[in-house]
Computed example of a mutant assay.
Amino acid sequence: MAHGQRTILRGLAVILRRRPLLSSAFLATAALTFIFGLKAIFYLTYWTDHRQKPIASWMSINHIARVWKVDADALNGALQISDSAMNGVSIARIAQEKGEPVQVIIKQIKSVIEQEHGEPPS
């Protein structure tokens, strides 16, 4: 190890001994910054990738609204759902509750997305 590196390490050791509370606060802040940075990267890659996925029966109204950037109330209106509690329920369950095939519900959702964005979803 070079003389300069040893000097830096000794200086850090002195700071850690003399200011343990300040050092701990700095390390905690650095760790939180790292964690939230990773979370932001994961969030960006997750939602960017999901925009390309076709609408499927496992998706909920909230999920579709977030991925395709449409208003959940507009989707509820197209599906004639008055209860916003259904927003967290899968399309398959909504179709079952309404007694309609899943593909009909998906078609209605795609028409709302096409109206808002001018292009049909995949």
Rank of each mutant, 00 (worst) to 15 (best):
K110Y: 00
L12K: 07
V89M: 10
A31S: 13
R51G: 09
M86Y: 09
L12P: 00
L9T: 10
H117F: 03
I81H: 01
A31I: 14
A2Y: 04
A78D: 05
I15P: 00
G4P: 02
V14C: 06
Q96T: 09
I113P: 02
P120K: 12
H3A: 15
Q115H: 08
A28R: 07
M86I: 11
D71L: 10
G118M: 07
L12N: 04
Q115K: 15
I109R: 00
D71N: 15
K98C: 05
K98G: 05
L27P: 01
A95N: 03
W68E: 12
I91F: 03
Q103N: 10
I41R: 13
G11M: 12
N76M: 15
I41S: 12
R93Q: 15
E119M: 08
R17C: 04
I105H: 01
M1K: 05
G99W: 04
L75F: 07
D49Q: 15
K110C: 14
A74Y: 02
Q115E: 11
V112K: 01
F26P: 00
I113N: 02
F42I: 06
V89Q: 09
L9P: 01
G77Q: 10
G77H: 05
A72I: 07
V102L: 02
T45I: 10
P120T: 13
A85S: 14
R6T: 09
S82L: 07
A2T: 15
T7M: 15
A65G: 02
H117A: 04
I15Y: 11
G88P: 04
Y46M: 13
R18H: 09
H50Y: 07
H117D: 07
H117I: 05
Y43L: 07
E114I: 04
L22T: 08
E119A: 13
L16G: 05
Q103F: 05
E114C: 12
V89R: 09
G77T: 05
